[in-house]
């Protein structure tokens, strides 16, 4: 007997939650307890009174599972709202990365040229290295990191995805 897997699709979910102790464990634990996937997860306080946080989760699964994930998240007591950005019209999705590259001579010049093409900023430099700051959708950052890997990638830090629906209204 072999274990079969179903076709998955990627969804970006945006949650507003009460900013209280344990909320992140509650969300992350729900994913692990029910066997859902997390590609990235970001969380930060977004209110003026520090009462509300936004959590953005990138997940994947068959459509039926995505529906379940939303329903299960919605059931948690401190969760105010769950919006499936992927299913909710056009939306903006961004991620920030810090990319450390070491190299000298031509490699150094090439790194700067590529950074220019990707509109990455230099935020730290030494004679033999740069740290670039780059923002964009996940695939743009993936390609930037892949190019830097050929030049002399030292390490990468990524924030994970945040997103908002396009247009003037709240999702």
């Amino acid at each position: 007997m072999h274990i079969r897997e179903e076709q998955s699709e990627r969804h970006v979910l945006s949650l507003t939650v009460t900013n209280e102790a344990g909320i992140l464990a509650r969300i992350a634990g729900l994913f692990s307890a029910r066997g859902y996937n997390i590609e990235s997860l970001t969380v930060a306080d977004i209110g003026t009174d520090h009462q509300i946080s936004r959590i953005t989760v990138v997940t994947n699964g068959p459509p039926k599972v995505i529906d379940q994930i939303i329903a299960q998240l919605d059931r948690l007591v401190p969760v105010h709202r769950v919006v499936d950005l992927t299913d909710n019209g056009p939306f903006v999705e961004r991620e920030l990365a810090l990319v450390k590259v070491a190299g000298t001579g031509d490699d150094r010049i090439e790194a700067l040229r590529i950074a220019d093409v990707f509109r990455a900023k230099v935020v730290d430099t030494t004679i033999g290295s740069f740290i670039f700051e780059i923002t964009g959708p996940t695939d743009k950052i993936d390609s930037f990191v892949a190019l830097m890997r050929q030049i002399g990638l030292v390490e990468v830090g990524r924030t994970g995805v945040v997103g908002l629906v396009r247009g003037g209204k709240e999702a």
């Binding site: 039926k64 529906d67 379940q68 329903a71 299960q72 919605d74 059931r75």
Partner: peptide, 11 residues
């Protein structure tokens, strides 16, 4: 009463 029970196993 629980939306997460709907379509969980049977559509």
């Amino acid at each position: 009463i629980d939306r997460s029970s709907v379509n969980k196993t049977v559509a």
